[in-house]
């Protein structure tokens, strides 16, 4: 067990170091969500006048989306880097050591989650600095961070799965826009009950990303909404388990050794 933990720690350390040394992999995930938050919270402020809009502050409403977007960026980096390892033969180097497959998976995810967590603290800090108010207080902030980290883990697991299946950084990058599309057809900009276009509302309703956003959002603007939280955590856990299962199978095929 100690050996496995040591191996996980080493792989996670490498993942963090590698990402931290690529400014292009660190700066956009930190700045883009904040920029989008700044633009949307001003540009879409009028939406708060809609009858039934749940808050007077669009910043409060929109902040959760930053966590989703940032985690997706971190997952793209993790997936692309792992795919590059497959492509360059680095994975074969690791396969020749006594390292267990679980250590690779958990280590890569650990690195992505560490960066996701760092981003989450930054988004939260910036949000609070610009006046975001948590109706659930400190406990709500802690719960939000927990859910945000779980979401980061889920996206990272999807990134790892794509990397192991594709085996090339370019292929992984070409698949991530599809995930971004999924994010944009969610309830990121409006509550689902206020979306008037029926096909969009239907898509947002069947889109699991909506429930991730709403789970985070409820902690800021609504309170301890058990249903929203259960759906948010439930979707995140299912995402983690599903992607991890797929990634384990893909890793066994990719890291074929006797």
């Amino acid at each position: 067990m100690t050996l496995l933990l040591n191996q996980i720690g080493r792989i996670a350390w490498r993942s963090v170091i590698r990402t931290a040394r690529q400014p292009a992999a660190v700066i956009p995930p930190l700045t883009f969500p904040l920029m989008l938050m700044a633009v949307n919270s001003n540009g879409l402020r009028a939406a708060t006048h809609l009858p039934g809009f749940p808050t007077k502050s669009f910043l409060d409403f929109f902040l959760p989306f930053s966590f989703i977007q940032g985690a997706l960026f971190a997952a793209t980096t993790a997936g692309t880097d792992l795919a590059r390892d497959v492509d360059t033969g680095f994975l074969n180097r690791l396969a020749l050591t006594p390292m267990r497959g679980a250590a690779l998976l958990l280590g890569e995810l650990g690195g992505a989650v560490a960066l996701g967590a760092l981003q989450a603290f930054v988004y939260l800090g910036v949000g609070l600095a610009f006046g975001v108010h948590f109706v659930t207080g400190i406990g709500g902030m802690a719960t939000l961070l927990l859910l945000a980290i779980l979401i980061a883990l889920g996206w990272a697991a999807i990134g790892v799965l794509l990397a192991l299946r594709a085996g090339s950084g370019e292929k992984v990058q070409s698949q991530f826009p599809l995930l971004f599309f999924l994010v944009f057809i969610s309830s990121m900009n409006l509550p689902r009950n206020l979306i008037e276009v029926s096909w969009f509302r239907d898509l947002a309703t069947i889109n699991p990303v909506s429930y991730l956003i709403e789970g985070l959002r409820t902690l800021i603007i609504e309170g301890w909404n058990a249903q929203a939280l259960a759906l948010g955590f439930g979707v995140a856990i299912l995402m983690v388990l599903g992607a991890l299962g797929g990634a384990s199978i893909a890793l066994r095929q990719r890291m074929e050794r006797t």
């Binding site: 050996l3 040591n6 490498r14 170091i17 590698r18 680095f90 180097r93 050591t97 006594p98």
Partner: peptide, 20 residues
């Protein structure tokens, strides 16, 4: 098969650790 973002020493440390 090397990681361009790691140093030579870091490669050796990683390899030594994974080799137990």
């Amino acid at each position: 098969a090397l990681d361009p973002m790691l140093t030579g020493r870091e490669h050796l440390r990683l390899q030594a650790a994974l080799q137990g």
